[in-house]
Each structure stands twice: as C-alpha cells, then as structure tokens.
Amino acid sequence: MATSVEEISANRQFDGFNRRYKHRSSVLGCDMTFTVYFPPAAEKGKVPVLYYLSGLTCTDENFIQKSGAQRMAAARGVALVAPDTSPRGLGVEGEAESWDFGVGAGFYVNATQEKWRAWRMYDYVVEELPALLRAASPFASTLDVDLASIFGHSMGGHGALVVGLKNAQAYRSISAFAPICNPMNAPWGVKAFTGYLGADKEAWKQYDACELVRGFAGETKPPILVDTGSADKFLEVQLQPQALEGAIKDSGYSPATLRMQEGYDHSYFFISTFIDDHVNFHADALLGHKA
C-alpha cells in the first residue's frame, strides 16, 4: 500500500490544526481526501484517534466546518479523523444520478455487485485509512491509531455502529447522531443494499446494526451512545431508533445509552448542540478517565 499523502490545506483552530490531505486509495481505485484535526497535545506526543463518518451527500469537510467538535477535542487531547463518504471521479454510469446512492453515498459497505465494485468504504475505513495513518510520516509520530473510537451521523451513524460492532476489539467506544438504525427495513438502506450487495437479504445482515447487536458474540462490548432528535423528519421511516432500542433490549447489550432529544432535527445545528457530550464520551473511553 502506498503511504504518500499530500497536504492540501491547513487551518489553525483552538491551538491545534485542521489539516486536509489527498492520497491515492488502492482499495477504492481513486484519489481520496480526508481531514485530521490535530489537538495541541499532538505537538508533544501521540494522541488517540476519534473517527467521524459523515452522512449522505457529505464530504470530509462538513463535520470539520460545521460541528464545532474541535473545541472539546483540543481540551481533551483527542485527534479527529474525517474521511470522505464514497469513491469519486471513477465515471461509473449512474454514479451521480441520485443523492442517496453512488457518489457521496457509500454506506460504508463493501459492494459485491460488479458495477459498483469500487464502492468498498468498509475496507477503506477499517483497513486502508488506519494503515495509512500508522505508516505515513505526517501521522506516525502524532496519532496513536491503536487507541481509537468511532462515531458518525445518519448514514455515517449507521457506518459507525456497523464498523464498531464488527470490530469491537479495535474501537474503545461507538456513538451516533441520528443513525439509520435498521437499514434492511428503511428505504435508504434497501436502495443502497440492493444496489451494492444484490437481492440476497442474508448478505445485508452484516451491515445492519440491529442484526449485529442481536448476534453480538464478542467478549469486549464497546459502550454505545446514540442521540436522535424528536423533530427529525426522517425519524420514523429512515432512522427507526426504536428498532435499535429493541435489539439492545433483546440482546442485553450493555452499556448502551439511546437518547431522544426533544425538538431537534437532522441538521448540524443538532449535532453541534450535543457534540461535546459525544467527544467527552469517547475521550473518557480512550483516556481511561473523565474530564
């Protein structure tokens, strides 16, 4: 795997830096961008890593520019790593015809259908990006990639739950804002899974958080935090937090906290309101103590 990266922008914030990079992805077969927020503590030694997976139509920049997560990440000494949401520039027929499939809508799965074979965002997030962060010179001396947690929003909340539950030994904690909790039974998920994975619903189960919670067999259970807004227009049809709540209750998965935030919607106004809770939740797990 190539380990060269190109820095394409840098912005100082809260005495740390947001640095955006470009690299060639061998997994996806295209150039990819990602952004890292280095807290001030990274100037003195390695810091733990908190990955953020964005939602439909987003790039790596939405979270970095809108969430306000850097303030608490700087205070707690945690790096934020935000990858893009899909391959780009491959010219696959139909890749940009709809906002909820194709470009900007990778759903953090490994596609098995030939046309979409490059859509392997699961492997990119779980394998290629962490390997790059371990090996490339801008990160090897500043990021402790083996001390990591993961969170995300909407499609990325689904991704964070799936990645975290399928790789429980690799992540100290998992959280999500307004995740697509039961994609096998939600229109966004059905469209994506049918396109990327085919018609066999048995193949879909490995990417459904409710199925993964019910079948969880690992000895280590990363703590889970989920926030959803009661005024989210996607609440009942697409997100279905009640399905995840039921799966957690049925399986006895613990600790898991699911909160309904009264009056909040699906936007980054919602995320920015509760971002400190999530960064602190992960920092407590990563650093082994509360602030």
Results as ranks from 00 to 15, higher is better:
2 A>F: 04
2 A>C: 01
4 S>R: 12
6 E>D: 07
10 A>I: 10
21 Y>A: 05
26 S>F: 03
27 V>W: 01
29 G>F: 07
32 M>S: 03
39 P>S: 09
45 G>E: 10
46 K>P: 03
46 K>I: 00
47 V>R: 12
53 L>M: 12
55 G>K: 07
57 T>K: 11
58 C>Y: 01
66 K>N: 14
75 A>M: 11
78 V>S: 02
80 L>S: 10
89 G>P: 14
90 L>Q: 13
90 L>N: 10
98 S>D: 12
104 G>L: 08
105 A>T: 03
107 F>H: 04
109 V>H: 10
110 N>H: 08
120 R>V: 08
123 D>G: 04
125 V>E: 02
127 E>V: 11
129 L>E: 06
129 L>R: 04
132 L>N: 02
136 A>L: 05
143 L>W: 09
145 V>D: 04
146 D>M: 02
146 D>L: 05
150 I>L: 13
153 H>W: 09
157 G>P: 08
162 V>A: 01
173 S>L: 07
173 S>H: 05
174 I>N: 10
175 S>R: 01
175 S>T: 07
181 C>P: 06
183 P>C: 03
184 M>G: 01
186 A>V: 04
187 P>L: 07
188 W>M: 08
198 G>Y: 01
198 G>P: 11
208 D>Y: 00
210 C>E: 05
214 R>E: 15
215 G>P: 00
216 F>P: 02
216 F>C: 04
218 G>H: 11
219 E>F: 00
219 E>W: 00
220 T>M: 03
222 P>N: 09
225 L>T: 00
228 T>K: 00
229 G>M: 07
234 F>W: 13
235 L>P: 11
235 L>S: 03
237 V>R: 15
238 Q>I: 00
247 A>I: 09
247 A>L: 12
248 I>Q: 06
252 G>N: 13
253 Y>K: 13
256 A>G: 08
256 A>E: 06
266 H>C: 09
267 S>Q: 02
268 Y>L: 08
269 F>D: 14
281 F>T: 12
287 L>W: 01
